[in-house]
Amino acid sequence: MLMDLFNHWVVITLMMSGLYIVIAHGNLIKKIVGLSVFQTSVFIFYISMAKVDGGTAPILADDIVQYSNPLPHVLILTAIVVGIATTALGLSLVVRIKEAYGSIEEESIQQQDNQQQDNNAHAKRKQEEEA
Protein backbone atom coordinates (compact mmCIF):
# COMPACT_ATOMS: atom_id res chain seq x y z
CA MET A 1 0.00 0.00 0.00
CA LEU A 2 2.62 2.53 1.06
CA MET A 3 4.91 1.67 -1.83
CA ASP A 4 2.05 2.21 -4.28
CA LEU A 5 1.52 5.73 -3.06
CA PHE A 6 5.20 6.53 -2.61
CA ASN A 7 5.56 7.93 -6.12
CA HIS A 8 2.62 10.25 -5.60
CA TRP A 9 4.06 11.53 -2.35
CA VAL A 10 7.42 12.31 -3.85
CA VAL A 11 5.71 14.20 -6.63
CA ILE A 12 3.68 16.15 -4.07
CA THR A 13 6.92 17.03 -2.26
CA LEU A 14 8.28 18.36 -5.54
CA MET A 15 5.19 20.46 -6.20
CA MET A 16 5.30 21.90 -2.72
CA SER A 17 8.97 22.83 -2.93
CA GLY A 18 8.12 24.78 -6.07
CA LEU A 19 5.20 26.50 -4.38
CA TYR A 20 7.40 27.24 -1.37
CA ILE A 21 9.96 29.01 -3.54
CA VAL A 22 7.25 31.15 -5.13
CA ILE A 23 5.81 32.28 -1.82
CA ALA A 24 8.85 32.50 0.43
CA HIS A 25 11.48 34.01 -1.85
CA GLY A 26 11.60 37.68 -2.61
CA ASN A 27 13.78 37.57 -5.70
CA LEU A 28 11.63 37.92 -8.79
CA ILE A 29 13.66 35.51 -10.92
CA LYS A 30 13.70 32.96 -8.15
CA LYS A 31 9.92 33.22 -7.95
CA ILE A 32 9.64 32.39 -11.63
CA VAL A 33 12.03 29.48 -11.15
CA GLY A 34 9.71 28.35 -8.37
CA LEU A 35 6.68 28.57 -10.65
CA SER A 36 8.57 26.49 -13.20
CA VAL A 37 9.39 23.81 -10.63
CA PHE A 38 5.78 23.84 -9.41
CA GLN A 39 4.37 23.45 -12.91
CA THR A 40 6.89 20.83 -14.01
CA SER A 41 6.02 18.78 -10.93
CA VAL A 42 2.34 18.94 -11.82
CA PHE A 43 3.32 17.63 -15.25
CA ILE A 44 5.13 14.74 -13.54
CA PHE A 45 1.98 14.03 -11.58
CA TYR A 46 -0.14 13.88 -14.74
CA ILE A 47 2.34 11.73 -16.60
CA SER A 48 2.69 9.25 -13.76
CA MET A 49 -1.05 8.67 -13.72
CA ALA A 50 -0.88 7.73 -17.40
CA LYS A 51 1.55 4.88 -16.76
CA VAL A 52 0.25 1.34 -17.00
CA ASP A 53 2.40 -1.47 -15.58
CA GLY A 54 3.95 -3.36 -18.45
CA GLY A 55 2.74 -0.81 -20.97
CA THR A 56 4.78 0.90 -23.66
CA ALA A 57 4.80 4.26 -25.37
CA PRO A 58 1.47 4.89 -27.13
CA ILE A 59 2.75 4.45 -30.67
CA LEU A 60 0.91 1.65 -32.39
CA ALA A 61 2.97 -1.39 -33.35
CA ASP A 62 2.01 -4.93 -34.24
CA ASP A 63 3.39 -6.99 -31.40
CA ILE A 64 2.32 -4.83 -28.47
CA VAL A 65 -0.82 -5.39 -26.43
CA GLN A 66 -0.52 -2.91 -23.57
CA TYR A 67 -0.08 0.83 -24.11
CA SER A 68 0.19 3.61 -21.58
CA ASN A 69 -2.61 6.16 -21.62
CA PRO A 70 -2.02 8.79 -24.34
CA LEU A 71 -4.50 11.40 -23.10
CA PRO A 72 -2.49 12.82 -20.18
CA HIS A 73 0.47 13.06 -22.55
CA VAL A 74 -1.55 15.26 -24.86
CA LEU A 75 -2.75 17.43 -22.00
CA ILE A 76 0.75 17.91 -20.68
CA LEU A 77 2.15 18.76 -24.09
CA THR A 78 -0.30 21.64 -24.08
CA ALA A 79 0.51 22.53 -20.49
CA ILE A 80 4.27 22.64 -21.16
CA VAL A 81 3.68 25.17 -23.89
CA VAL A 82 1.50 27.22 -21.57
CA GLY A 83 4.28 27.01 -18.99
CA ILE A 84 6.99 28.38 -21.27
CA ALA A 85 4.64 31.11 -22.44
CA THR A 86 4.09 32.20 -18.84
CA THR A 87 7.81 32.02 -18.07
CA ALA A 88 8.71 34.15 -21.08
CA LEU A 89 6.14 36.78 -20.22
CA GLY A 90 7.12 36.76 -16.55
CA LEU A 91 10.79 37.18 -17.40
CA SER A 92 10.12 40.10 -19.71
CA LEU A 93 8.23 41.74 -16.85
CA VAL A 94 11.26 41.16 -14.63
CA VAL A 95 13.50 42.89 -17.17
CA ARG A 96 11.20 45.89 -17.30
CA ILE A 97 10.89 46.00 -13.50
CA LYS A 98 14.67 45.98 -13.17
CA GLU A 99 14.85 48.93 -15.55
CA ALA A 100 12.12 50.85 -13.76
CA TYR A 101 12.99 50.14 -10.15
CA GLY A 102 16.66 49.22 -10.36
CA SER A 103 16.04 46.11 -8.32
CA ILE A 104 14.46 42.70 -8.59
CA GLU A 105 13.89 42.16 -4.89
CA GLU A 106 10.27 42.25 -3.79
CA GLU A 107 11.06 44.16 -0.59
CA SER A 108 12.91 46.97 -2.27
CA ILE A 109 10.26 47.40 -4.96
CA GLN A 110 7.47 47.49 -2.43
CA GLN A 111 9.43 50.01 -0.39
CA GLN A 112 9.91 52.30 -3.37
CA ASP A 113 6.21 52.11 -4.19
CA ASN A 114 5.19 52.93 -0.64
CA GLN A 115 7.63 55.80 -0.53
CA GLN A 116 6.27 57.22 -3.74
CA GLN A 117 2.76 56.97 -2.39
CA ASP A 118 3.75 58.77 0.78
CA ASN A 119 5.44 61.49 -1.19
CA ASN A 120 2.38 61.93 -3.35
CA ALA A 121 0.17 62.11 -0.30
CA HIS A 122 2.47 64.66 1.24
CA ALA A 123 2.46 66.84 -1.84
CA LYS A 124 -1.28 66.58 -1.97
CA ARG A 125 -1.76 67.66 1.59
CA LYS A 126 0.39 70.70 0.92
CA GLN A 127 -1.66 71.49 -2.13
CA GLU A 128 -4.85 71.24 -0.13
CA GLU A 129 -3.54 73.47 2.59
CA GLU A 130 -2.60 76.08 0.05
CA ALA A 131 -6.02 75.84 -1.54
Binding site: T40, S48, P58, P72
Partner: peptide, 23 residues
Protein backbone atom coordinates in the same frame (compact mmCIF):
# COMPACT_ATOMS: atom_id res chain seq x y z
CA UNK B 1 10.50 6.01 -18.12
CA UNK B 2 6.75 6.67 -17.97
CA UNK B 3 6.39 5.98 -21.73
CA UNK B 4 5.63 9.60 -22.53
CA UNK B 5 8.18 10.06 -25.29
CA UNK B 6 6.50 13.01 -26.98
CA UNK B 7 6.27 14.88 -23.70
CA UNK B 8 9.88 14.04 -22.86
CA UNK B 9 11.00 15.46 -26.18
CA UNK B 10 9.13 18.69 -25.58
CA UNK B 11 10.19 19.04 -21.96
CA UNK B 12 13.83 18.53 -22.89
CA UNK B 13 13.60 21.20 -25.56
CA UNK B 14 11.61 23.65 -23.47
CA UNK B 15 12.43 23.01 -19.82
CA UNK B 16 16.10 22.31 -20.28
CA UNK B 17 16.63 24.39 -23.41
CA UNK B 18 14.59 27.48 -24.12
CA UNK B 19 13.62 28.47 -20.59
CA UNK B 20 17.18 28.06 -19.29
CA UNK B 21 18.46 30.19 -22.13
CA UNK B 22 15.92 32.93 -21.48
CA UNK B 23 16.69 32.98 -17.79
Amino acid sequence: AMDAVDVAFTEAAVGAGISTLLM
